[in-house]
Structures are given as structure tokens and as C-alpha cells.
């Protein structure tokens, strides 16, 4: 029987896949940027008046997080420590500017609807947090996965908030009528205070599900 020998520099087969799985699960669920870390709340409240806007905003943050993580990871060995935060900020700003131009060119109505919140991704804690917390210590592939996972986690919560607000506010989801003409439109969930309440309730549900799953896991171990 032959035994495979590994150099120590590279990961044995299966290790990368396991790490990738853990990274995805952590970003998207266990350490969800909004529900657990309470990051990126400002944009999450402001742009979730409709499911479509929430989805585009989520995609924008995901794009920025993926490519920022990739570049930061590629440059991590060459990056002077004293200026690393400003370098990360510059990289984020570059991708956000490109994204903003792309939105203006190909999805201008949405660019108008999202307004200043697309340029404000530069100050969103998620891309910066992942670049500093993950991409500086990991390889490009895992870093991109981490960016994608956190972006997806953010998008998922945004989409849920956007869908609930739009459904309760207009009786539609992504512009499609779900509730009939009998439904009386309500401005409350579309208002900023309504956004806070919807997001708060969603976080309560999210944590209740996580807690229940954790207890079930503990019980299974016992």
C-alpha cells in the first residue's frame, strides 16, 4: 500500500475542499455579516425598499468583496504593513468605481434607485473587514471564496428584508404582484422605521434557528 507524501507547503487532497466548505458556511451562515456581525446595516436598511434593489446591492457588495479579496491576497506578501489599510481602501474604491460605471451603463434605472449607496460600498465594513481579516492571511482562491460567501450572506439577508418590505408595502415581490387588488398598500414597512423592525425581527428569527440547530447538534453528541 502506497502512502502519499506531502511537502508541507501544499495542502493534501481534501483539505482545501474542507477549508473551502468551512469558509463558505462561515461567511454565508455561521458568521453572516448582517445577522451575526451586524455589519453593513446602513445600506441594508436604505436600499431594501424593493427585492430587486436589494439583490443588485447584494451583487455589488459580493463583486467588490470577491475582487478586493483576490487582489489583497495576491499582494499580501508585497504590501507594506504601515499602509495596508489605505491600500485596501484604494483597491475597494477602484472596484466600486468600476462597478458604479458598469451600473450606470447597463442598469441605469437601478443605479439611480441605489443612488449614493453604491459609491458608499467603499465605506461598507464587509469588503474591508474580509480583506483585513481573511485575504491578508490566505491564498487567492480561498480569499475569493470568502468574499463570495460573505457577499452571498449579505445578499441573502438583504433579499429577505427587501422582499418582506416590498410585499408588505406594495403587495409585490420584484415588481410581480403577489397579493391581489384587495391588499391595502402600507407605507410603514417601506419607511426607515419599518426597515429597522423588519431587519430586527429577521435577526431574531435567524438567531433562533441557529440556536435551535446548535442545541440539536449538542443533543445528538450527548
Amino acid at each position: 500500500m502506497t502512502e502519499q507524501i506531502h511537502c508541507g507547503q501544499c495542502n493534501p487532497p481534501g483539505v482545501f475542499a474542507a477549508r473551502a466548505g468551512r469558509t463558505m458556511l462561515a461567511g454565508a451562515w455561521n458568521e453572516n455579516p448582517i445577522a451575526i456581525q451586524i455589519l453593513g446595516i446602513c445600506s441594508a436598511l436604505a436600499v431594501t425598499r424593493s427585492a430587486q434593489a436589494a439583490l443588485v446591492m447584494g451583487a455589488a457588495v459580493t463583486f467588490t468583496a470577491i475582487f478586493t479579496n483576490l487582489l489583497v491576497s495576491l499582494l499580501r506578501r508585497f504590501m507594506p504593513q504601515s499602509v495596508r489599510l489605505i491600500v485596501q481602501m484604494l483597491i475597494i474604491a477602484t472596484f466600486v468605481s468600476v462597478l458604479d460605471e458598469l451600473l450606470k451603463a447597463f442598469h441605469p434605472e437601478m443605479s439611480k434607485e441605489l443612488g449614493a449607496y453604491v459609491p458608499l460600498i467603499i465605506t461598507n465594513c464587509i469588503p474591508m473587514g474580509r480583506a483585513e481579516g481573511f485575504a491578508l492571511r490566505n491564498g487567492p482562491a480561498l480569499s475569493m471564496l470568502d468574499g463570495a460567501a460573505n457577499g452571498l450572506g449579505y445578499t441573502g439577508v438583504l433579499l429577505m428584508v427587501g422582499s418582506i418590505r416590498e410585499l408588505a408595502g406594495n403587495g409585490t415581490i420584484a415588481g410581480f404582484r403577489i397579493l391581489g387588488d384587495w391588499y391595502v398598500k402600507s407605507d410603514f414597512t417601506l419607511s426607515p422605521s419599518g426597515a429597522f423592525i423588519v431587519l430586527g425581527l429577521l435577526i431574531v428569527c435567524y438567531n433562533a434557528i441557529r440556536l435551535r440547530a446548535a442545541r440539536a447538534k449538542e443533543a445528538a453528541h450527548d
Binding site: T94, S97, K104
Partner: peptide
């Protein structure tokens, strides 16, 4: 970064 943003702006 300047080249990337400038290029995107010009192309789009």
C-alpha cells in the same frame, strides 16, 4: 487603480 477606473469610464 487609476488606469482601471479611467479605462472603465472611457469604455463605458
Amino acid at each position: 487603480c487609476g488606469l482601471l477606473t479611467g479605462g472603465a469610464k472611457k469604455y463605458l
